[in-house]
Design a binder for these strands. Structure first.
Length: 477
DNA sequence: CTAGGGTTAG
Protein backbone atom coordinates (compact mmCIF):
# COMPACT_ATOMS: atom_id res chain seq x y z
CA UNK A 1 0.00 0.00 0.00
CA UNK A 2 2.66 2.37 1.15
CA UNK A 3 4.84 1.35 -1.72
CA UNK A 4 2.00 1.92 -4.15
CA UNK A 5 1.44 5.36 -2.75
CA UNK A 6 5.07 6.27 -3.19
CA UNK A 7 4.99 4.84 -6.65
CA UNK A 8 1.97 6.92 -7.57
CA UNK A 9 3.69 9.98 -6.17
CA UNK A 10 6.69 9.25 -8.32
CA UNK A 11 4.70 8.71 -11.49
CA UNK A 12 2.56 11.72 -10.83
CA UNK A 13 5.62 13.85 -10.30
CA UNK A 14 7.09 12.39 -13.46
CA UNK A 15 3.86 13.22 -15.24
CA UNK A 16 4.03 16.65 -13.67
CA UNK A 17 7.53 17.04 -15.06
CA UNK A 18 6.19 16.24 -18.48
CA UNK A 19 3.47 18.82 -18.07
CA UNK A 20 5.95 21.50 -17.09
CA UNK A 21 5.81 24.45 -19.47
CA UNK A 22 8.36 24.22 -22.28
CA UNK A 23 11.59 26.19 -21.82
CA UNK A 24 10.96 29.91 -22.25
CA UNK A 25 11.17 31.09 -25.82
CA UNK A 26 13.47 34.11 -26.27
CA UNK A 27 11.60 35.18 -29.41
CA UNK A 28 8.26 35.25 -27.62
CA UNK A 29 9.62 37.17 -24.64
CA UNK A 30 11.42 39.64 -26.94
CA UNK A 31 8.24 40.30 -28.87
CA UNK A 32 6.34 40.76 -25.63
CA UNK A 33 8.89 43.31 -24.42
CA UNK A 34 8.77 45.07 -27.77
CA UNK A 35 5.02 45.30 -27.95
CA UNK A 36 4.39 46.38 -24.38
CA UNK A 37 4.86 49.93 -23.08
CA UNK A 38 8.13 50.74 -21.39
CA UNK A 39 6.68 50.68 -17.84
CA UNK A 40 5.31 47.14 -18.12
CA UNK A 41 6.62 44.56 -15.71
CA UNK A 42 8.45 41.51 -16.94
CA UNK A 43 6.57 38.26 -17.38
CA UNK A 44 6.56 36.61 -13.97
CA UNK A 45 7.65 33.07 -13.14
CA UNK A 46 10.17 32.95 -15.95
CA UNK A 47 13.18 30.83 -15.02
CA UNK A 48 15.83 33.35 -16.05
CA UNK A 49 19.19 32.04 -17.16
CA UNK A 50 22.20 33.90 -18.58
CA UNK A 51 21.65 32.12 -21.88
CA UNK A 52 18.03 33.25 -22.08
CA UNK A 53 18.90 36.81 -21.09
CA UNK A 54 21.69 36.95 -23.67
CA UNK A 55 19.53 35.73 -26.50
CA UNK A 56 16.89 38.31 -25.63
CA UNK A 57 19.50 41.08 -25.54
CA UNK A 58 20.78 39.98 -28.94
CA UNK A 59 17.28 39.95 -30.39
CA UNK A 60 16.62 43.43 -29.03
CA UNK A 61 20.04 44.63 -30.25
CA UNK A 62 18.51 47.11 -32.67
CA UNK A 63 16.04 48.36 -30.14
CA UNK A 64 18.60 49.54 -27.63
CA UNK A 65 16.39 51.49 -25.22
CA UNK A 66 14.05 48.50 -24.76
CA UNK A 67 16.99 46.13 -24.39
CA UNK A 68 18.54 48.26 -21.67
CA UNK A 69 15.23 48.71 -19.95
CA UNK A 70 14.81 44.95 -19.84
CA UNK A 71 18.31 44.53 -18.46
CA UNK A 72 17.71 47.11 -15.72
CA UNK A 73 14.35 45.66 -14.71
CA UNK A 74 15.84 42.24 -14.27
CA UNK A 75 18.84 43.65 -12.45
CA UNK A 76 16.76 45.58 -9.95
CA UNK A 77 13.57 43.61 -9.46
CA UNK A 78 14.79 40.07 -9.25
CA UNK A 79 16.54 39.26 -6.02
CA UNK A 80 17.17 35.69 -7.06
CA UNK A 81 18.73 36.44 -10.40
CA UNK A 82 22.12 38.08 -10.91
CA UNK A 83 23.25 39.04 -14.38
CA UNK A 84 26.20 37.15 -15.79
CA UNK A 85 29.35 38.96 -16.96
CA UNK A 86 28.47 38.20 -20.59
CA UNK A 87 25.05 39.85 -20.17
CA UNK A 88 26.74 42.89 -18.67
CA UNK A 89 29.10 43.02 -21.62
CA UNK A 90 26.19 42.91 -24.05
CA UNK A 91 24.34 45.65 -22.17
CA UNK A 92 27.50 47.77 -22.07
CA UNK A 93 27.94 47.32 -25.81
CA UNK A 94 24.35 48.41 -26.44
CA UNK A 95 24.68 51.45 -24.17
CA UNK A 96 27.97 52.45 -25.81
CA UNK A 97 26.41 52.21 -29.25
CA UNK A 98 23.69 54.62 -28.09
CA UNK A 99 26.43 56.94 -26.77
CA UNK A 100 25.02 56.58 -23.24
CA UNK A 101 28.31 57.06 -21.45
CA UNK A 102 26.79 57.54 -18.03
CA UNK A 103 25.00 54.22 -18.39
CA UNK A 104 28.19 52.54 -19.60
CA UNK A 105 30.09 53.63 -16.50
CA UNK A 106 27.31 52.81 -14.08
CA UNK A 107 27.13 49.32 -15.58
CA UNK A 108 30.89 48.92 -15.20
CA UNK A 109 30.67 50.05 -11.56
CA UNK A 110 27.78 47.66 -10.98
CA UNK A 111 29.83 44.80 -12.41
CA UNK A 112 32.64 45.67 -10.06
CA UNK A 113 30.42 45.90 -6.99
CA UNK A 114 29.02 42.47 -7.81
CA UNK A 115 32.63 41.28 -8.16
CA UNK A 116 32.03 39.80 -11.59
CA UNK A 117 34.19 42.13 -13.63
CA UNK A 118 34.90 44.25 -15.56
CA UNK A 119 37.09 41.99 -17.67
CA UNK A 120 39.52 42.86 -20.47
CA UNK A 121 36.68 41.96 -22.81
CA UNK A 122 34.51 44.67 -21.24
CA UNK A 123 37.21 47.23 -21.91
CA UNK A 124 37.73 45.95 -25.44
CA UNK A 125 34.05 46.58 -26.13
CA UNK A 126 34.12 50.12 -24.82
CA UNK A 127 37.45 50.86 -26.52
CA UNK A 128 36.05 49.61 -29.80
CA UNK A 129 33.15 52.06 -29.50
CA UNK A 130 35.56 54.94 -28.80
CA UNK A 131 37.88 54.02 -31.64
CA UNK A 132 35.13 53.68 -34.20
CA UNK A 133 33.45 56.92 -33.24
CA UNK A 134 36.55 58.99 -33.87
CA UNK A 135 38.00 58.96 -30.37
CA UNK A 136 41.09 56.72 -30.56
CA UNK A 137 42.81 58.68 -27.77
CA UNK A 138 39.99 57.84 -25.41
CA UNK A 139 40.36 54.18 -26.38
CA UNK A 140 44.07 54.31 -25.57
CA UNK A 141 43.45 56.04 -22.24
CA UNK A 142 40.89 53.47 -21.35
CA UNK A 143 43.49 50.75 -21.84
CA UNK A 144 46.13 52.68 -19.91
CA UNK A 145 43.75 53.20 -16.98
CA UNK A 146 41.98 49.87 -16.90
CA UNK A 147 43.95 48.71 -13.87
CA UNK A 148 42.26 51.51 -11.91
CA UNK A 149 38.95 49.84 -12.61
CA UNK A 150 40.06 46.52 -11.26
CA UNK A 151 41.31 44.93 -14.44
CA UNK A 152 44.91 44.02 -15.00
CA UNK A 153 46.84 44.66 -18.18
CA UNK A 154 48.69 41.87 -19.87
CA UNK A 155 49.98 40.89 -23.28
CA UNK A 156 46.56 39.60 -24.35
CA UNK A 157 44.79 42.83 -23.50
CA UNK A 158 47.61 44.81 -25.12
CA UNK A 159 47.13 42.79 -28.31
CA UNK A 160 43.40 43.35 -28.07
CA UNK A 161 43.59 47.12 -27.80
CA UNK A 162 46.02 47.23 -30.73
CA UNK A 163 43.66 45.10 -32.76
CA UNK A 164 40.69 47.28 -31.86
CA UNK A 165 42.58 50.38 -33.02
CA UNK A 166 43.73 48.68 -36.23
CA UNK A 167 40.30 47.32 -37.11
CA UNK A 168 38.83 50.80 -36.84
CA UNK A 169 41.57 52.03 -39.16
CA UNK A 170 43.43 53.92 -36.45
CA UNK A 171 46.66 52.25 -37.37
CA UNK A 172 48.92 55.24 -36.72
CA UNK A 173 47.59 55.39 -33.18
CA UNK A 174 48.07 51.66 -32.76
CA UNK A 175 51.61 51.80 -34.12
CA UNK A 176 52.49 54.58 -31.66
CA UNK A 177 51.19 52.59 -28.72
CA UNK A 178 52.92 49.48 -30.04
CA UNK A 179 56.31 51.21 -30.22
CA UNK A 180 55.88 52.71 -26.75
CA UNK A 181 54.86 49.55 -24.96
CA UNK A 182 56.11 46.54 -26.92
CA UNK A 183 59.04 46.20 -24.52
CA UNK A 184 56.90 46.34 -21.41
CA UNK A 185 54.48 43.66 -22.62
CA UNK A 186 57.08 41.66 -24.60
CA UNK A 187 55.30 41.73 -27.93
CA UNK A 188 54.80 38.32 -29.50
CA UNK A 189 53.90 37.02 -32.94
CA UNK A 190 50.25 37.96 -32.38
CA UNK A 191 51.20 41.57 -31.63
CA UNK A 192 53.20 41.81 -34.82
CA UNK A 193 50.49 40.12 -36.87
CA UNK A 194 47.95 42.62 -35.59
CA UNK A 195 50.13 45.53 -36.70
CA UNK A 196 50.96 43.97 -40.07
CA UNK A 197 47.23 43.51 -40.62
CA UNK A 198 46.60 47.10 -39.55
CA UNK A 199 48.85 48.54 -42.27
CA UNK A 200 47.35 46.13 -44.79
CA UNK A 201 43.83 47.25 -43.90
CA UNK A 202 44.64 50.81 -44.91
CA UNK A 203 46.48 49.52 -47.99
CA UNK A 204 49.93 50.54 -46.83
CA UNK A 205 51.75 47.34 -47.71
CA UNK A 206 55.23 48.93 -47.66
CA UNK A 207 54.72 49.72 -43.94
CA UNK A 208 53.42 46.19 -43.38
CA UNK A 209 56.55 44.75 -45.00
CA UNK A 210 58.67 47.00 -42.81
CA UNK A 211 57.01 45.59 -39.68
CA UNK A 212 57.49 42.08 -41.06
CA UNK A 213 61.20 42.75 -41.48
CA UNK A 214 61.38 44.24 -38.02
CA UNK A 215 59.82 41.22 -36.37
CA UNK A 216 62.34 38.92 -38.01
CA UNK A 217 65.17 41.17 -36.83
CA UNK A 218 63.83 40.98 -33.32
CA UNK A 219 63.83 37.23 -33.42
CA UNK A 220 60.10 36.61 -33.74
CA UNK A 221 59.33 34.17 -36.54
CA UNK A 222 56.43 35.03 -38.81
CA UNK A 223 53.89 32.23 -39.17
CA UNK A 224 51.32 31.29 -41.77
CA UNK A 225 48.91 33.86 -40.37
CA UNK A 226 51.50 36.57 -40.97
CA UNK A 227 51.94 35.51 -44.60
CA UNK A 228 48.24 35.11 -45.26
CA UNK A 229 47.67 38.58 -43.83
CA UNK A 230 50.33 40.04 -46.09
CA UNK A 231 48.93 38.20 -49.09
CA UNK A 232 45.49 39.59 -48.47
CA UNK A 233 47.03 43.03 -48.07
CA UNK A 234 48.52 42.94 -51.57
CA UNK A 235 45.23 41.99 -53.17
CA UNK A 236 43.31 44.50 -51.10
CA UNK A 237 45.56 47.32 -52.23
CA UNK A 238 45.26 46.28 -55.85
CA UNK A 239 48.81 44.90 -56.09
CA UNK A 240 47.69 41.76 -57.88
CA UNK A 241 51.11 41.04 -59.37
CA UNK A 242 52.88 41.33 -56.00
CA UNK A 243 50.18 39.21 -54.43
CA UNK A 244 50.65 36.50 -57.01
CA UNK A 245 54.42 36.50 -56.59
CA UNK A 246 54.09 36.41 -52.83
CA UNK A 247 51.83 33.38 -53.23
CA UNK A 248 54.39 31.63 -55.48
CA UNK A 249 57.10 32.42 -52.94
CA UNK A 250 55.00 30.96 -50.12
CA UNK A 251 54.59 27.71 -52.04
CA UNK A 252 58.27 27.61 -52.99
CA UNK A 253 59.39 28.08 -49.41
CA UNK A 254 56.99 25.41 -48.14
CA UNK A 255 55.17 27.69 -45.74
CA UNK A 256 52.40 25.11 -45.63
CA UNK A 257 49.82 27.08 -47.59
CA UNK A 258 46.32 26.26 -46.40
CA UNK A 259 42.66 26.80 -47.24
CA UNK A 260 42.90 30.43 -46.10
CA UNK A 261 45.79 31.08 -48.50
CA UNK A 262 43.88 29.61 -51.42
CA UNK A 263 40.65 31.40 -50.54
CA UNK A 264 42.53 34.69 -50.40
CA UNK A 265 44.03 34.14 -53.85
CA UNK A 266 40.78 32.96 -55.44
CA UNK A 267 38.99 36.00 -54.06
CA UNK A 268 41.81 38.42 -54.85
CA UNK A 269 42.21 37.33 -58.45
CA UNK A 270 38.47 37.25 -59.00
CA UNK A 271 37.86 40.72 -57.63
CA UNK A 272 40.45 42.08 -60.04
CA UNK A 273 38.51 40.48 -62.87
CA UNK A 274 40.76 37.48 -63.47
CA UNK A 275 38.02 34.92 -63.17
CA UNK A 276 39.75 32.26 -65.28
CA UNK A 277 42.91 32.39 -63.20
CA UNK A 278 40.83 32.33 -60.01
CA UNK A 279 39.06 29.20 -61.22
CA UNK A 280 42.42 27.62 -62.05
CA UNK A 281 43.68 28.29 -58.53
CA UNK A 282 40.49 26.74 -57.17
CA UNK A 283 41.17 23.59 -59.23
CA UNK A 284 44.80 23.59 -58.17
CA UNK A 285 43.87 23.64 -54.52
CA UNK A 286 41.75 20.53 -54.93
CA UNK A 287 44.59 18.82 -56.89
CA UNK A 288 46.98 19.73 -54.06
CA UNK A 289 44.67 18.09 -51.55
CA UNK A 290 43.61 21.27 -49.77
CA UNK A 291 39.90 20.96 -49.12
CA UNK A 292 37.88 24.08 -50.04
CA UNK A 293 35.70 25.40 -47.22
CA UNK A 294 32.30 27.05 -47.41
CA UNK A 295 34.18 30.38 -47.38
CA UNK A 296 36.15 29.29 -50.46
CA UNK A 297 32.92 28.50 -52.27
CA UNK A 298 31.45 31.79 -51.14
CA UNK A 299 34.43 33.64 -52.59
CA UNK A 300 34.12 31.81 -55.89
CA UNK A 301 30.36 32.30 -56.08
CA UNK A 302 30.73 35.98 -55.31
CA UNK A 303 33.30 36.68 -57.99
CA UNK A 304 31.26 34.76 -60.56
CA UNK A 305 28.27 36.94 -59.71
CA UNK A 306 30.34 40.07 -60.00
CA UNK A 307 32.72 39.40 -62.86
CA UNK A 308 31.10 36.55 -64.74
CA UNK A 309 27.45 35.52 -64.86
CA UNK A 310 25.02 34.74 -62.10
CA UNK A 311 24.14 31.54 -63.99
CA UNK A 312 27.67 30.24 -63.53
CA UNK A 313 27.48 31.21 -59.87
CA UNK A 314 24.30 29.16 -59.50
CA UNK A 315 26.07 26.20 -61.15
CA UNK A 316 28.87 26.36 -58.57
CA UNK A 317 26.25 26.61 -55.82
CA UNK A 318 24.56 23.44 -57.08
CA UNK A 319 27.93 21.70 -57.31
CA UNK A 320 28.65 22.69 -53.73
CA UNK A 321 25.35 21.13 -52.63
CA UNK A 322 26.09 17.93 -54.58
CA UNK A 323 29.42 17.65 -52.78
CA UNK A 324 27.63 17.78 -49.46
CA UNK A 325 28.60 21.27 -48.30
CA UNK A 326 26.15 23.19 -46.16
CA UNK A 327 25.84 26.73 -47.48
CA UNK A 328 25.62 29.41 -44.81
CA UNK A 329 23.96 32.83 -44.64
CA UNK A 330 26.82 34.41 -46.57
CA UNK A 331 26.45 31.94 -49.43
CA UNK A 332 22.79 32.76 -49.78
CA UNK A 333 23.30 36.49 -49.38
CA UNK A 334 25.93 36.53 -52.11
CA UNK A 335 23.68 34.57 -54.46
CA UNK A 336 20.56 36.57 -53.71
CA UNK A 337 22.50 39.77 -54.29
CA UNK A 338 23.76 38.39 -57.60
CA UNK A 339 20.24 37.53 -58.69
CA UNK A 340 18.82 40.90 -57.69
CA UNK A 341 21.72 42.65 -59.35
CA UNK A 342 20.90 40.82 -62.57
CA UNK A 343 17.30 41.99 -62.23
CA UNK A 344 16.12 38.46 -61.40
CA UNK A 345 13.93 39.56 -58.50
CA UNK A 346 11.65 36.53 -58.61
CA UNK A 347 14.55 34.10 -58.55
CA UNK A 348 16.12 36.14 -55.76
CA UNK A 349 12.97 35.78 -53.68
CA UNK A 350 12.89 32.08 -54.48
CA UNK A 351 16.47 31.72 -53.26
CA UNK A 352 15.51 33.45 -50.02
CA UNK A 353 12.71 30.93 -49.55
CA UNK A 354 15.16 28.07 -50.18
CA UNK A 355 17.56 29.57 -47.70
CA UNK A 356 14.99 29.49 -44.93
CA UNK A 357 13.11 26.32 -45.83
CA UNK A 358 15.79 24.02 -47.21
CA UNK A 359 18.99 25.65 -46.04
CA UNK A 360 17.87 26.13 -42.47
CA UNK A 361 19.37 29.62 -42.48
CA UNK A 362 17.53 32.60 -41.08
CA UNK A 363 17.64 35.70 -43.25
CA UNK A 364 20.03 38.22 -41.70
CA UNK A 365 19.83 41.98 -41.66
CA UNK A 366 22.23 41.92 -44.63
CA UNK A 367 19.70 39.82 -46.54
CA UNK A 368 16.85 42.17 -45.75
CA UNK A 369 18.77 45.41 -46.21
CA UNK A 370 20.08 44.33 -49.58
CA UNK A 371 16.66 43.24 -50.85
CA UNK A 372 15.00 46.36 -49.47
CA UNK A 373 17.65 48.45 -51.21
CA UNK A 374 16.99 46.88 -54.60
CA UNK A 375 13.23 47.26 -54.22
CA UNK A 376 13.52 50.80 -52.89
CA UNK A 377 15.76 51.96 -55.70
CA UNK A 378 13.16 51.11 -58.30
CA UNK A 379 10.25 52.49 -56.33
CA UNK A 380 8.74 49.15 -55.29
CA UNK A 381 7.59 50.62 -52.00
CA UNK A 382 5.09 47.86 -51.20
CA UNK A 383 7.75 45.19 -51.64
CA UNK A 384 10.21 47.04 -49.39
CA UNK A 385 7.60 47.62 -46.72
CA UNK A 386 6.57 43.98 -46.88
CA UNK A 387 10.14 42.89 -46.17
CA UNK A 388 10.44 45.50 -43.43
CA UNK A 389 7.33 44.08 -41.73
CA UNK A 390 8.75 40.55 -41.92
CA UNK A 391 11.93 41.79 -40.36
CA UNK A 392 10.12 43.43 -37.47
CA UNK A 393 8.34 40.21 -36.59
CA UNK A 394 11.30 37.92 -37.10
CA UNK A 395 14.65 37.26 -35.52
CA UNK A 396 16.39 40.36 -36.78
CA UNK A 397 15.13 43.83 -36.08
CA UNK A 398 15.72 46.69 -38.53
CA UNK A 399 18.94 48.59 -37.90
CA UNK A 400 20.05 52.13 -38.75
CA UNK A 401 20.88 51.17 -42.34
CA UNK A 402 17.43 49.63 -42.83
CA UNK A 403 15.74 52.86 -41.83
CA UNK A 404 18.01 54.97 -44.02
CA UNK A 405 17.50 52.72 -47.05
CA UNK A 406 13.76 52.55 -46.54
CA UNK A 407 13.34 56.30 -45.99
CA UNK A 408 15.36 57.09 -49.13
CA UNK A 409 13.09 54.74 -51.03
CA UNK A 410 10.08 56.81 -50.01
CA UNK A 411 11.27 59.67 -52.19
CA UNK A 412 11.46 57.68 -55.42
CA UNK A 413 7.79 57.85 -56.43
CA UNK A 414 7.28 61.41 -55.20
CA UNK A 415 3.91 60.64 -53.63
CA UNK A 416 2.29 62.34 -50.70
CA UNK A 417 1.38 59.09 -48.95
CA UNK A 418 4.99 57.92 -49.18
CA UNK A 419 6.05 61.04 -47.28
CA UNK A 420 3.69 60.14 -44.45
CA UNK A 421 5.26 56.68 -44.26
CA UNK A 422 8.71 58.28 -44.24
CA UNK A 423 7.59 60.47 -41.34
CA UNK A 424 6.34 57.48 -39.38
CA UNK A 425 9.58 55.64 -39.98
CA UNK A 426 11.56 58.64 -38.77
CA UNK A 427 9.59 58.77 -35.53
CA UNK A 428 9.95 55.03 -35.05
CA UNK A 429 13.70 55.00 -35.60
CA UNK A 430 14.20 57.74 -33.03
CA UNK A 431 12.07 55.79 -30.55
CA UNK A 432 14.36 52.84 -31.08
CA UNK A 433 17.39 54.86 -30.14
CA UNK A 434 18.80 55.56 -33.61
CA UNK A 435 20.01 59.04 -34.43
CA UNK A 436 19.02 60.00 -37.97
CA UNK A 437 21.41 62.17 -39.90
CA UNK A 438 20.39 65.80 -40.07
CA UNK A 439 20.11 65.34 -43.84
CA UNK A 440 17.50 62.59 -43.38
CA UNK A 441 15.56 64.57 -40.82
CA UNK A 442 15.37 67.71 -42.96
CA UNK A 443 14.59 65.76 -46.08
CA UNK A 444 11.59 64.05 -44.50
CA UNK A 445 10.22 67.25 -42.94
CA UNK A 446 10.62 69.15 -46.19
CA UNK A 447 8.96 66.30 -48.04
CA UNK A 448 5.98 66.48 -45.69
CA UNK A 449 5.71 70.25 -46.04
CA UNK A 450 5.87 70.12 -49.83
CA UNK A 451 3.09 67.53 -50.05
CA UNK A 452 0.62 69.32 -47.81
CA UNK A 453 1.31 67.37 -44.63
CA UNK A 454 2.06 70.37 -42.41
CA UNK A 455 0.13 68.90 -39.51
CA UNK A 456 2.27 65.77 -39.32
CA UNK A 457 5.47 67.75 -39.84
CA UNK A 458 4.61 69.96 -36.87
CA UNK A 459 3.78 66.93 -34.78
CA UNK A 460 7.17 65.38 -35.50
CA UNK A 461 8.95 68.61 -34.75
CA UNK A 462 7.08 69.03 -31.46
CA UNK A 463 7.83 65.52 -30.28
CA UNK A 464 11.47 65.95 -31.20
CA UNK A 465 12.01 69.29 -29.49
CA UNK A 466 10.25 67.94 -26.41
CA UNK A 467 12.77 65.13 -26.22
CA UNK A 468 15.55 67.70 -26.53
CA UNK A 469 16.80 66.39 -29.84
CA UNK A 470 19.69 68.24 -31.42
CA UNK A 471 18.01 67.79 -34.76
CA UNK A 472 15.32 70.39 -34.33
CA UNK A 473 17.69 73.23 -33.49
CA UNK A 474 18.06 74.47 -37.05
CA UNK A 475 14.60 73.71 -38.22
CA UNK A 476 11.87 76.35 -38.43
CA UNK A 477 8.36 75.85 -39.66
C1' DC B 1 37.38 40.60 -28.21
C1' DT B 2 44.88 36.72 -28.41
C1' DA B 3 46.24 37.25 -35.09
C1' DG B 4 44.70 35.40 -41.16
C1' DG B 5 39.98 33.65 -45.81
C1' DG B 6 33.22 34.85 -48.07
C1' DT B 7 28.29 39.61 -47.64
C1' DT B 8 28.20 46.68 -49.67
C1' DA B 9 29.79 50.40 -53.10
C1' DG B 10 32.47 54.39 -54.42
Amino acid sequence: MNRLFIKSLCTSSAAGANLKPPPPDPAAISNLILSSPIQSPLPSNTPWTPHLVNSILKRLWNHGPKALHFFHLLDRRHRNYIHSPSSFNLAIDIAARLHLHTTVWSLIRRMRSLRIGPSPKTFAIVAERFASSGKPDKAVNLFLNMHEHGCSQDLASFNTILDVLCKSKRVEKAYELFKDLRGRFSADVVTYNVIVNGWCLIKRTPKALEVLKEMVERGISPNLTTYNTMLKGFFRSGQVRQGWEFFLEMKKRNCGVDVVTYTTVVHGLGVSGEVKRAKKVFDEMIREGVLPSVATYNALIQILCKKDTVENAVLVFEEMLRKGYEPNVTTYNVLIRGLFHAGEFTRGEEMMRRMEEEGGCEASFQTYNMMIRYYSECGEVEKSLGLFERMGSGGCLPNLDTYNILISGMFVRKRSEDMVVAGKLLVEMVERGFVPRRFTFNRVLNGLLLTGNQGFAKEILRSQSKSGSRLTKNFRL
